[in-house]
Amino acid sequence: MLQETASRAPYVAARPASQRRARVRLARNALSYAILGLLSCVMALPLFWMLSTSLKTYRNVYAFPPQWIPNPVAWENYAEALSVVPFPLYFRNTMLIAVLVMAGNLVTCAVVAYGFARLNAPGKNLLFSILLSTMMLPGQVTLIPVYILFQRLGWVNTFAPLIVPSWFAHSAFSIFLFRQFFMSIPHELTDAAKIDGANHFVILSRIIVPLSKPVVATLGVFTFMGVWNDFFHPLIYLQDQSKFTLALGLLSLISAAREAGAGGEAWNLLMAGSAMVIAPMVVVFFFAQRYFIEGITLTGLKG
């Protein structure tokens, strides 16, 4: 008798227990969805506000309580922002610098990383650790003498200080990431090519690099974004308004917006300009998100 109740008990209890568990799971899921929803709102708020403000009329910018959804929608702000500051020109400048830096960085850093990953030279490891330690050195330390150097070369107020360093494997981070990846490529593949008479340049360009597409994409995206978002270096090296990059162009838009708005700052124009600067990055990010995440993850696991 006792045995029977004991054996039946679990069956009796089973249903409410599983129901309770299901309810607990549901509640917990609802809670984490709520937290996630709140967090998403907080993270998205500035970008949403930028878009929203960029589409408001002058009057509605200063409405209180603030409008969340602009009404009426003032698309003309974008055209007006474009007429106040020559964004197309700044876009061309930025693209030119970004593409040249990206190309220089990828080519030269891949070559250097190949040396570190696949060849043997005395003192190689020491050199590599010195290289890594430069990642920790804040850029400001070398800033003034580098500025003086570029000034003596007559490069201030040209794109050269922003581009040329990248053609000399300037990025320790890129070399590091390339090297880690190159080292993981099996030696059998390159040995076979060597026996067939391929030299190192052929091995690098025909075997190693095609096998390293993910890391090339990752570093390409990182480098491009770094140049696009850079504010400090254009600020100190570029003086002519016609040579500005987008990030720097925003600064002139801020002062232009102060004058454009009658009685107050033309925030809507400022936000329209900001949205135009950010938009290409967001697009790049949506398409290259995987590489972006991989890059940061690699840093974390191997750094």
């Binding site: 970008l47 600064l251 936000m271 967001v282 990010f285």
Partner: peptide, 27 residues
């Protein structure tokens, strides 16, 4: 995840201007 990662790629100059506007004390 995409939403969470956007601040990472957004041009700091542009987002700083946005924050500045959001932090305006009166309106």
């Amino acid at each position: 995840r995409t939403l969470f990662l956007l601040p990472l790629v957004a041009t700091p100059t542009a987002t700083s201007v946005t924050w500045m506007i959001m932090m305006e004390p009166s309106i």
